[in-house]
């Protein structure tokens, strides 16, 4: 028996919008810790890891660990039927091949339930080691989104370099080149508007902009984004989900042969 009641149902709607273009089918895992997902894109270059901690739900019942395979496009279709202010409850039974999403309007005058078919997904689960990163950049998520979008009109790949000068995003394409440098800036009115660069060593890595642009679909989930870089590791682009957990995207770098 599984019953998860999420008062801020819009969070789940936003999570689906952030993931459904990157991953087609995924297993949602439910345990005492929370509601989580780990899935790779079809080319095995990018990975999304989601955690919504059990404490963030108003009611969280998960009698035993359960994995539910869902088509994210179909799940998104169902969640789009929930209002932004609706409370969403996810219900499942052991051995059932369906999951139910119940939507309640804030004043309880409309209650809907949508039952979706589950699927068997033979997914690969990757072990992601804890890592020390050479550089961690925290910046407004809207700024990161803007940079990725702007650069992708010039080139296909971006070189992200962190030095003591700041973080530089560079691209080149048929029409020319572009460089955007963001310097540390802590003197802002609100902490989420700050750009904070923690650097242990300079690092420079190349990534496909197509994937970074896809990650920025998570921008509505958080005012700030953290980009963690190490020369031997995939980049981690993390959006914290207030009081609940996170959505993290990993992207393997392009490497010179």
């Amino acid at each position: 028996m599984l019953e998860l009641r999420l008062v801020q149902g819009s969070l789940l709607k936003k999570v689906l919008e952030a993931t459904k273009d990157l991953v087609t089918d995924a297993n949602f895992d439910c345990s005492a810790t929370g509601f989580s997902l780990q899935a790779m894109d079809s080319s095995h270059v990018a990975l999304v890891a989601l955690l919504l901690r059990s404490e963030g739900f108003e009611h969280y019942r998960c009698d035993r660990n359960i994995s539910m395979g869902m088509n994210l496009n179909n799940m998104s279709k169902m969640l789009k039927c929930a209002g932004n202010d609706d409370i969403i409850t996810i219900k499942g039974d052991d051995g059932s091949d369906t999951v139910t999403f119940m939507f309640e309007s804030p004043n309880q005058d409309k209650i809907s339930d949508f039952e979706m078919k589950l699927m068997d997904i033979d997914s690969e689960h990757l072990g992601i080691p804890e890592a020390e990163y050479h550089a961690i950049v925290k910046m407004p998520s809207s700024e990161f989104q803007r940079i990725c979008k702007d650069l992708s009109s010039i080139g296909d790949t971006v070189v992200i370099s962190v030095t003591k000068e700041g973080v530089k995003f560079s691209t080149r394409g048929d029409i020319g080149t572009a460089n955007i440098v963001c310097r540390q800036n802590k003197t802002v009115d609100k902490p989420e508007e700050a750009t904070i660069i923690e650097m242990n060593e300079p690092v420079s890595l190349t990534f496909a902009l197509r994937y970074l642009n896809s990650f920025t679909k998570a921008t509505p989930l958080s005012e700030s984004v953290t980009v963690s870089l190490s020369s031997e590791l995939p980049v981690v682009v993390e959006y914290k989900i207030a009081d609940m957990g996170y959505i993290r995207f990993y992207l393997a770098p392009k490497i010179e042969d």
């Binding site: 095995h44 072990g127 590791l233 393997a252 392009k254």
Partner: peptide, 14 residues
């Protein structure tokens, strides 16, 4: 020449 690496080059299958 620049190649796209794969996640399994860095992370292990569990």
């Amino acid at each position: 020449q620049i190649f796209q690496s794969l996640l399994v080059d860095f992370f292990n299958n569990k």
